[in-house]
């Protein structure tokens, strides 16, 4: 019983309700508490760190403007996720990135990778080179795989929590995380 109540309790709910009343300090508090994963979602969609700040500011502005229209305050995280994702997609559309289908993105991510032979010892990269290769690989991941991958690695969220925020079944989140790792491995073959 106590566990069930503890599970249902959301410490952010009073803050969200205050936000709905137009309290700017509630927005400030929400940004402090949840700025991290919101940035993660923006990066997950865009794959471009240079645009994360702009997208986040736009998303939080939308949160501030539309808070009164939030009908189910208990589902506020999924609502914020959609606003951030939409802001990021709008920003990405400017560069015509979002026009590529998932298949095209996956193919382009895998294109030009080294052949599937094991690397020779003299080909093994230094730690700094490995990090750079990984950075490029993460940026090249299709957004649908990068989003849960970023939330998992940045926030350490469980599949269930990621699924709840993204509005997906937990099985789908798991499948995407498996494919993200597989794609990264393909891209980094011989480098890491």
């Amino acid at each position: 019983m106590v566990m069930a109540l503890a599970h249902q309790f959301d410490a952010d709910l009073p803050v969200v309700e205050a936000l709905q009343q137009g309290d700017p300090y509630a927005l400030d508090e929400l940004m402090r508490r949840h700025g991290g994963w919101v940035r993660g979602v923006a990066y997950g969609v865009l794959g471009d760190p240079s645009r994360v700040d702009d997208v986040c500011q736009q998303a939080w502005t939308a949160v501030w403007e539309q808070a009164r229209r939030l009908r189910e305050p208990s589902r506020w995280k999924a609502w914020v996720y959609r606003l951030v994702r939409n802001a990021a997609i709008d920003a990405g559309r400017d560069k015509r990135r979002a026009r590529k289908t998932v298949q095209e993105l996956a193919e382009s991510a895998l294109a030009g990778r080294p052949p599937r032979e094991p690397a020779r010892p003299d080909e093994v990269l230094s730690e700094a080179e490995q990090r750079e290769a990984m950075r490029q690989a993460i940026r090249s991941l299709p957004a649908i795989y990068r989003e849960p991958f970023v939330l998992r690695h940045m926030e350490g969220w469980s599949y269930r929590r990621i699924a709840e925020v993204m509005g997906l079944p937990a099985d789908t989140v798991e499948t995407r995380l498996v494919r993200a790792r597989r794609l990264l491995r393909e891209m980094l073959r011989g480098k890491v």
Partner: peptide, 22 residues
């Protein structure tokens, strides 16, 4: 490798300026 990199890529968690947002 990815764990440290993701946080690095996403950047600091400093929230946007409240005045700018509102």
């Amino acid at each position: 490798l990815a764990s440290g990199l993701v946080s690095e890529e996403v950047g600091s968690c400093a929230p946007p300026d409240l005045a700018l947002v509102t």
